[in-house]
Design a protein around this nucleic acid. Structure first.
Lengths: 218, 218
DNA sequence: GTTCTAAAAGAACAAAGGTTCGGTCGCGAT
DNA sequence: ATCGCGACCGAACCTTTGTTCTTTTAGAAC
């Protein structure tokens, strides 16, 4: 997350360096590749390329940028905005309809429906997929019709985790907190005012853990 | 979203072109700037730079990439992953506590708490901010403790829109669907099982419209 | 076979762009 | 005064890198 004295180093930048940094940032936003030294020079009213180089070295030393020497436009912002990650929406979760559980192979291949999410929501996890919620049968878990839930594939879950559970007998899927109680399972809605569901442990098949819920407001 | 014949043009790419495209994509992911023609050549086992150029022209013609001539590494993917956008979290919405409504000036300056969102959620809107939900007094609107709501600043709202409303007499804020009924206002929870709140129109101050709700699952 | 064309090779060229180096200009310390 | 130093200038230098040109190959069409 940093190093001792990072804050000081970052404060120790001249107005010229701040201006250079801002220009690089906006240039990358516009062009998707970094500016050349001469472009920085012109944009920031600097008289010589060597001055740009001088300040870039300073910025590099203070940890603001990284430079790939011997590479044109080899400037990389350390504090750059990450890009979005596309997660496949592999199905719809609704009472009475099974979720097609994905095989990891077909994930990226099928350019089916996807949703973009910020990397921090994935957080390094693998086997992440998304489900579209249909109907309001999950309203007791504070999940509404049209919501998108981010899931991590899992066959098991610890007590208290919110999972997508497939009820074999009832032939339906639901989103609930799961608790093992001997040979049966309690599915607890997130909303305290709603009553839990009890069923046999053998009747439950965990499809994945809920890691995020996202709802666009119309 | 495309142009007539786009699909055909995209299918008309040789395996070599596909490989080049994938390499560019992964290179940009790793370095944050595009590869040079000679780097593409080496990575894709191509014998000559002119062959790379030949295929890049084809990719450009088929609309896969854009090229800035006379610019080193001036390759831009048309279908690139957008970057995240940082939205300021300007406060907490909870019963009994006022929301500090932001002035547009101080937004970007204060590097206070922010949340990254995908651009499609903003959708060109301006004056977007975020609120952190504290407590479960909004549970009837399917909003839970800890949720982040994306808001668009607004002083007025149409009937049926979900807004953050400040109740002057009660000195508390809430998230509800708003309906004007003569000189009073109905605040309708999103959950049909909950009863609406009625109050005088003069008692209501709209703070913003809800455009998105986001919940990380612990 | 001949012809035509997409695709590829290889080399040379020229522009773009990073780096270097000698020198200047304050400015505080010695 | 002068020494040291951070910041800055200019210009030359040379690598990187995009472009071009000629030639070759491999099929498909005739």
């Amino acid at each position: 997350m940093g190093w001792p004295g990072m804050e000081e180093a970052m404060r120790e930048q001249s107005p010229k360096q701040t201006r250079i940094l801002e220009f690089i940032r906006s240039f990358i936003d516009n062009h998707d590749y970094p500016p050349s030294i001469r472009q920085i020079q012109e944009a920031c009213d600097i008289s010589s390329t060597s001055v740009v180089d001088y300040n870039l070295r300073a910025l590099e030393k203070s940890g603001q940028i990284r430079r790939d020497r011997d590479v044109s436009r080899g400037i990389e912002l350390v504090d750059k905005r990450p890009r979005v990650i596309s997660v496949p929406i592999i199905g719809t979760i609704a009472a009475g309809q099974p979720i097609p559980v994905p095989s990891a192979d077909t994930w990226q291949d099928h350019d089916s429906d996807t949703i973009d999410v910020t990397p921090d929501k994935i957080g390094g996890r693998e086997d992440v997929y998304a489900l579209r919620v249909k109907g309001d049968s999950m309203i007791d878990a504070l999940v509404n019709d049209g919501d998108i839930v981010l899931m991590q594939k899992a066959e098991t879950a610890h007590d208290g985790e919110m999972v997508a559970a497939w009820l074999k007998d009832e032939q339906e899927a639901t989103l609930k907190k799961i608790y093992r109680e001997g040979d049966r399972v309690r599915l607890q809605p997130a909303n305290r005012t709603m009553a839990p569901i009890y069923t046999a442990a053998a009747n439950i098949q965990v499809q994945g853990k809920v890691i995020h819920i996202s709802r666009d407001n119309p």
